[in-house]
């Protein structure tokens, strides 16, 4: 990704509603062609950020630049190059899927013949061809969401912004939807910004993520690096399973140098290392030497879930989180 131009940039973007600060000094940089995940709990300010990027809400202070254009001053130009799938997207219930998409095409000044072609193609790509002439009121949640993606494909923007795209869809639907998004981004060379509070679902497709809590961006980067960045300076925790699993195993582990605590957590045993130490290289030969077989080993705190939990539970963010 390095060297790619930044497509979405925010400078100290801030939005206050009365005394409530929805977004505080957000500095974000999203580069050409990447999938960026804005992750945070509900009410963290994700939707507000997106609305400011599209010029639909005026920032209290700071700047949002999309392709170098200030979204507040040039909303039309920004909206021409950015497609937006709102949280819980809605369509005109009395119109058919095709009619809804044609309306979008007309609003984007796509000539009629071209519009028909694009609508048919995008409905096919999201697997709704057979429902093109059905009224949207008959559609399920998942179908609406897919229609929302088709709506964006009709517009064919360079930047795609998705707000909670996987919310309320069954797991199979989520898998298909994410595959669709990845295909759009990779084949079409689009820049994708998606927001979600369901990190498990989206972390697999994001090139980089930003952790967004209570209006502040706490950390941003590739999922793998984020773990090290966040956990730097904190003692490493290791989760393991070994055989034979008896009390002798616990005392054996305790006696290993560099281990400060050993606890049993369900089926796993958790080790805490002394600050700055990683005992994993020594652990395997050590256990083997004592007659134990290692079955499972994982460093906690390095995947998104742990990071996420860390920020939700730790450091007082939990209490200040808005609804």
């Amino acid at each position: 990704m390095a060297g790619q131009a930044a497509v979405i940039v925010t400078h100290n973007l801030t939005k206050r509603y009365g005394s409530i600060t929805a977004v505080q000094d957000l500095n974000l940089e999203i580069r050409q062609g990447e999938i960026f995940g804005l992750l945070g709990p509900n009410g963290a300010g994700k939707t507000t950020t997106i609305l400011m990027l599209l010029g639909l809400t005026e920032p209290t202070s700071g700047q949002a630049l999309v392709n170098g254009l200030d979204a507040t001053r040039h909303p039309l130009e920004v909206k021409r190059i950015a497609g937006y799938l709102p949280d819980n997207v809605g369509f005109y219930d009395d119109l058919t899927a095709r009619e809804n998409l044609l309306y979008t095409a007309r609003l984007n000044q796509i000539p009629p013949a071209e519009a028909e072609k694009r609508v048919a193609l995008s409905l096919e790509q999201v697997g709704l061809s057979n429902f093109a002439h059905r009224r949207v009121k008959e559609f399920s949640r998942g179908m609406r969401q897919r229609l929302g993606i088709a709506d964006i494909m009709v517009k064919d923007p360079a930047i795609i912004i998705l707000d909670e795209p996987t919310l309320g869809i069954d797991p199979e639907g989520v898998r298909e939807l994410l595959a669709l998004i990845v295909r759009l981004a990779r084949e079409g060379g689009k820049t994708v910004l998606l927001s979600s509070h369901l990190l498990h679902q989206v972390q697999q497709i994001c090139d980089r993520v930003g952790i967004f809590v209570a209006g502040r961006l706490l950390a941003a980067g590739p999922v793998a690096l984020l773990g090290h960045q966040v956990m730097a300076g904190k003692p490493l925790e290791i989760e393991l399973q070994a055989e034979p699993d008896n009390d002798n195993l616990l005392s054996t582990l305790r006696s290993l140098q560099g281990v400060t605590a050993v606890e049993r957590h369900g089926a796993f045993i958790r080790l805490r290392c002394a600050a700055g130490r990683d005992i994993r290289p020594e652990l395997v030969p050590y256990l083997a030497g004592k007659g134990f077989t290692l079955l499972y080993l994982r460093a906690r705190g390095y995947d998104l879930d742990d990071i996420y939990r860390q920020y939700f539970q730790g450091e007082g963010y939990h209490g200040t989180m808005a609804g």
Binding site: K79, V89, F91, Y92, L107, D151
Partner: peptide, 14 residues
């Protein structure tokens, strides 16, 4: 209420 307003306003129109 139909949640079409934000989608409509995200199109390039005044």
């Amino acid at each position: 209420n139909k949640r079409t307003l934000s989608r409509l306003l995200a199109q390039p129109i005044y």
